[in-house]
């Protein structure tokens, strides 16, 4: 199952979900985190969840998959060119 899936997919997912898991565990084990942990009077959750988790983190992973996919495609195309030349 999932034979042929690139290793960077699994590494990307591991880092990606680790972020969510760590934040969620922190919030569910330490009382008051979403409101009481603040930076300059602003709850930190406004940064790590409203901005990073909701927006930047998924975009970053999607960008990473696209970028690595492009590299893969170029490598594959180059390899096919070499094979053609050899025949």
């Amino acid at each position: 199952m999932f034979k042929g899936m690139k290793p960077y997919f699994w590494w990307g997912l591991a880092v990606y979900y680790a972020w969510f898991a760590i934040i969620m565990l922190w919030e569910m084990t330490t009382p008051g985190v979403p409101f009481e942990v603040q930076v300059g009077g602003v709850p930190l959750s406004f940064f790590y969840n409203a901005v990073i988790s909701t927006w930047l983190w998924p975009v970053a992973l999607a960008y990473f998959f696209w970028y690595m996919g492009e590299i893969d495609d170029k490598k594959r195309a180059a390899s096919q060119e070499v094979n053609k030349g050899g025949r």
Partner: peptide
């Protein structure tokens, strides 16, 4: 958060 999964 589920959107990037679709990429690959």
């Amino acid at each position: 958060g589920g959107m990037p999964l679709a990429s690959m």
